[in-house]
């Protein structure tokens, strides 16, 4: 078992942080890589990015949003309990390079994935402006952590309950208008990444996105995570999860993410009936 040593609830329990003992993975992991977790015998294999790793302590940290059955099940795991299986580190690490001015754009739990990448980009000497957004104030996560790893932090909410009213793309446009941005990293819901990429394409600014297709093994053996990038089929678990944002077929990805929507609903309802909160 992989034991949970620390657990935090954020955003009124919709976002959970777990620090977990996994010494072999902690020893190897790099920013941008993910793990696959399985809670128990009957559980599903769920990919989550490592938000932090501590090789000395032998722990990894994941931050996830409760969206369905598996993440709701993860939420019931307390300190001292743990996951039956954790596999990793998987995926290619982020290319962390000094390029100058970088804008990191995050939405939803994408912010959790963005956080370690932002930190690495700052540590190597880039000037980092971060833009994080959510539908409303209560749903915004990791503001403090993002602030700590950015030179400048901009916040947007769809309803204007906090920060600037509007979408992350509105704030991004202003930054891009100033010129002199070498790289944009965008991680969040697929539509967000799509619109960010559309915008940065107009400005001709290189853009990296992190894709989250449905996965099974995470080692390139099933092809379930396939995405279209340019004119090629790529397996996000081994060729990614990060890709050139200007080349990704987002519409296909969005459809593919709906593959099991009926199953997911059934599974989640059953779980909530048995575990009322």
């Amino acid at each position: 078992m992989f034991k949970i040593v620390k657990r935090e609830e954020m955003s009124e329990g919709t976002v959970i942080l777990n620090e977990i003992e996994a010494p072999l993975i902690a020893r190897k992991a790099k920013p941008g890589q993910f793990v696959i977790l399985k809670a128990n015998e009957t559980g599903e294999r769920i990919p989550l990015t490592m938000a932090e790793t501590d090789p000395e302590k032998g722990t990894i940290t994941v931050i996830y949003m409760v969206v369905g059955k598996s993440t709701a099940l993860f939420k019931t795991l307390m300190v001292g309990e743990g996951y039956q299986d954790i596999i990793g580190p998987l995926g290619k690490p982020t290319d962390v390079e000094k390029v100058g001015n970088v804008v990191c754009v995050g939405g939803g739990t994408g912010i959790a994935v963005l956080h370690p990448i932002t930190r690495a980009l700052k540590e190597i000497g880039n000037h980092v402006t971060s833009i994080i957004g959510a539908r409303s104030k209560d749903l915004l996560i990791l503001e403090d952590k993002m602030k700590a790893v950015s030179h400048e932090l901009l916040i947007t909410t769809d309803d204007g309950s906090y920060g600037r009213k509007g979408f992350v793309t509105d704030a991004l446009k202003d930054v891009l208008d100033k010129g002199d941005t070498q790289l944009v990293v965008a991680i969040g819901p697929v539509p967000m990444m799509k619109f960010v990429s559309k915008l940065t394409q107009e400005y001709g600014v290189k853009t990296i996105v992190s894709l989250n297709p449905i996965m099974v093994d995470g080692t390139g053996m099933c092809g379930g995570c396939r995405v279209t990038v340019g004119d090629q089929t790529k397996f996000a678990c081994v060729d990614g999860p990060e890709f050139d944002g200007h080349k990704v077929d987002y519409d296909e990805l969005m459809l593919r993410l709906q593959a099991y929507c009926e199953h997911e609903q059934q599974c989640y309802n059953d779980f909530c009936m048995l575990n009322p909160q």
């Binding site: 099974v216 093994d217 053996m221 099933c222 092809g223 379930g224 396939r226 279209t228 089929t233 296909e252 459809l255 593919r256 709906q258 593959a259």
Partner: peptide
């Protein structure tokens, strides 16, 4: 080839 409902045998059988 990437429509939903097209599985590799590996994925189908692994699931």
């Amino acid at each position: 080839k990437n429509l939903i409902g097209i599985y590799s045998a590996n994925e189908y059988l692994t699931r």
